[in-house]
C-alpha cells in the first residue's frame, strides 16, 4: 500500500537503548517501521517490546539513541496530537460515558469536540446504543471498542497498540480483530501492534518483527504479503506457513530448542 510520507511517515530508531535500574529493557537497537504499514511486534513476555512502543510514543526517554517519526521527534508528534495509544486495559475514565471518553481525546488533543464525528466513530466501532453508557455498564469487548474509538477520533498519523485485545476472551478477541483493524487500515495509518498472538500478528500486519527475550533484539523480520481481506485465510497454506515462520523464530529466539537442534 503506497503511503504519503507526510501523513504516514517512516519511524526510524537508531542505537536505541533503555534500562530500568539494572534491567536492560532495550539494547542498542536499530529499526525502521515503514509508513502506512501495520508492523506487529511479537516476543516473549517482558522482552521490552512494550518499552519500545512507549519510547516511540515519547512516554519514556531513551538512555541512548534517537527516534525520528518523519522529520519529527516523538515529543513533537505528541504535541501535535499526531499519535494515539491503546493499552491492554482500555483505561476508560469510569466517570465519563462512552461519548465522554471519546470526547476527552479530542479535548486533550486540542481539537474541537465534534459530537457528530464522535457518534459516527462510536457507531463505526459497533457501540450503537451504548453512547451514554459508563464503562462500568459495558462488557470488556465493548470497552475495548470505545478505547479504539477514542484512539481514532483524533485522526492520528501513528497508532500504537499495546496488546489491545489481550484482556478479552478468545471469542471476543476474534470478533474485535475482524471488526476494528479495517477501520484504521482503511486510513493508511502507521500502526505498531504489540501482541502475544502469532495468529493476530499475521492476520493484522504487513510485517512481523520477532524479538528475543530481554534485552530486546530482533531475531526475525518477516514480511506478510497476504492479500486483504485476511479474515477467513487462517486455514490457507500461505497463512499457516507464515505463522509457522513466526512461531519458529519466536521459539528460536528463546535459545536452542530440541526441534531447532534436530533441524541442524
Amino acid at each position: 500500500m503506497p503511503a504519503d510520507p507526510r501523513i504516514a511517515p517512516d519511524i526510524v530508531c537508531k542505537g536505541l537503548a533503555k534500562r530500568f535500574g539494572d534491567v536492560v529493557a532495550v539494547d542498542p537497537l536499530d529499526v525502521t517501521f515503514r509508513g502506512g504499514q501495520t508492523t506487529a511486534l511479537v516476543g516473549p513476555s517482558g522482552c521490552g517490546k512494550s518499552t519500545l512502543l512507549r519510547l516511540v510514543a515519547g512516554l519514556e526517554r531513551p538512555d541512548a539513541g534517537s527516534i525520528r517519526i518523519g522529520d519529527d521527534t516523538p515529543d513533537a508528534v505528541r504535541a501535535q496530537a499526531g499519535l494515539a495509544i491503546a493499552f491492554q486495559d482500555p483505561s476508560l475514565l469510569p466517570w465519563r460515558t462512552a461519548r465522554g471518553n471519546v470526547a476527552l481525546a479530542q479535548r486533550l488533543a486540542g481539537q474541537r469536540v465534534d459530537a457528530a464525528a464522535i457518534d459516527a466513530m462510536l457507531d463505526l466501532v459497533g457501540l450503537d446504543g451504548f453512547f451514554d453508557a459508563r464503562p462500568g455498564a459495558l462488557s470488556g469487548g465493548m470497552r475495548q471498542r470505545a478505547a479504539i474509538a477514542r484512539c481514532l477520533i483524533t485522526q492520528p498519523r501513528l497508532l500504537l497498540l499495546d496488546e489491545p485485545f489481550g484482556a478479552v476472551d478468545e471469542l471476543t478477541r476474534r470478533k474485535l480483530s475482524e471488526d476494528l483493524p479495517p477501520i484504521w487500515q482503511a486510513r493508511g495509518t502507521t500502526t505498531l501492534l504489540v501482541t502475544h498472538s502469532v495468529t493476530e500478528a499475521v492476520l493484522l500486519s504487513q510485517r512481523v518483527l520477532v524479538f528475543s527475550p530481554r534485552p530486546a533484539r530482533i531475531v526475525a523480520d518477516i514480511a506478510i504479503d497476504l492479500p486483504d481481506p485476511r479474515p477467513g485465510q487462517e486455514t490457507t497454506p500461505a497463512f499457516i506457513d507464515l505463522a509457522e515462520q513466526v512461531s519458529a523464530a519466536l521459539i528460536g529466539g528463546e535459545g536452542p530448542s530440541p526441534r531447532r537442534l534436530a533441524a541442524q
Partner: peptide, 22 residues
Amino acid sequence: PAAWLDLVRSYGRGRFAMLWHI
C-alpha cells in the same frame, strides 16, 4: 492508574491537563 496519565501524555499534554481532566 498510570495508564490514565499516559493517555494524557500521549496527546502531548502535561501535569495541568492530568490534574484537570483526570
